[in-house]
Simulated scan of single mutants.
Amino acid sequence: MSGLEAALAEASSPSWSQRVRAGRDLASFADVPDAAEALVGLLLDVEDTAVTRQTAEALAQVGTPAAVRLIALAVARADDSHVEWMRTGVHDALAGPDGVPDVAAVCGQLAQDPEEAVCLAARELSTWTDEARC
């Protein structure tokens, strides 16, 4: 079983810690359709907000347009609680010592996305990056 297949299997585990690991492991595969679907599911995890927070952090650390777009898609579908946990995860990534790609620049690109929900959520994500810099 490949690393991608193993992470996809973990994404549906009953164990929150395995789902967290799946979110971290899948983040670099954000442009792969099966991984993208699983990642949005992890961002919207109904059983444990640690999964939401750490998956958002992992995707922000990757920082590619595909990764940040998944956060935007989840924000567009999420309730207020999940949005707050995603926001915290993004802040954690931006405040980390390792440095991350310019998520704000990616949000600017996504603000032109043809899908209106992604546009609006990308604009909200952009405000999170501004807050993290303060």
Rank of each mutant, 00 (worst) to 15 (best):
C134I: 15
S81C: 01
E10Y: 14
R133V: 03
L39W: 08
V75A: 12
G41Q: 00
E84N: 04
L42C: 04
S81N: 02
V62P: 01
E131T: 08
A66E: 15
A93T: 04
P33W: 10
H91A: 09
E131P: 00
V40G: 03
Q112Y: 01
A27T: 04
T49K: 15
A111R: 12
E10G: 05
G96Y: 00
C119V: 02
D92V: 01
E84D: 15
G89E: 00
S13F: 08
G89R: 02
P97S: 14
D25E: 10
A67I: 06
G108H: 06
S15E: 15
G89S: 12
A76G: 09
A7Y: 07
S15N: 07
F29Y: 15
S81Y: 02
V62G: 00
A74P: 12
S17F: 15
A67W: 10
T55L: 02
A132Q: 12
A104Y: 04
M1T: 07
A95F: 05
A6L: 14
A122E: 12
R53W: 05
V32Y: 02
A58S: 06
T129F: 15
M86S: 00
A27E: 05
L59I: 10
L26S: 15
L4R: 11
A122Y: 12
L42K: 14
R77E: 14
R133G: 14
R21K: 15
R24D: 01
T52D: 04
V118C: 03
A36I: 07
Q112V: 03
T127D: 03
G63A: 15
A104W: 02
L8K: 07
D45P: 02
P33F: 01
P65M: 08
R133Q: 13
P97L: 05
D45A: 04
T55F: 05
A105F: 10
L59H: 01
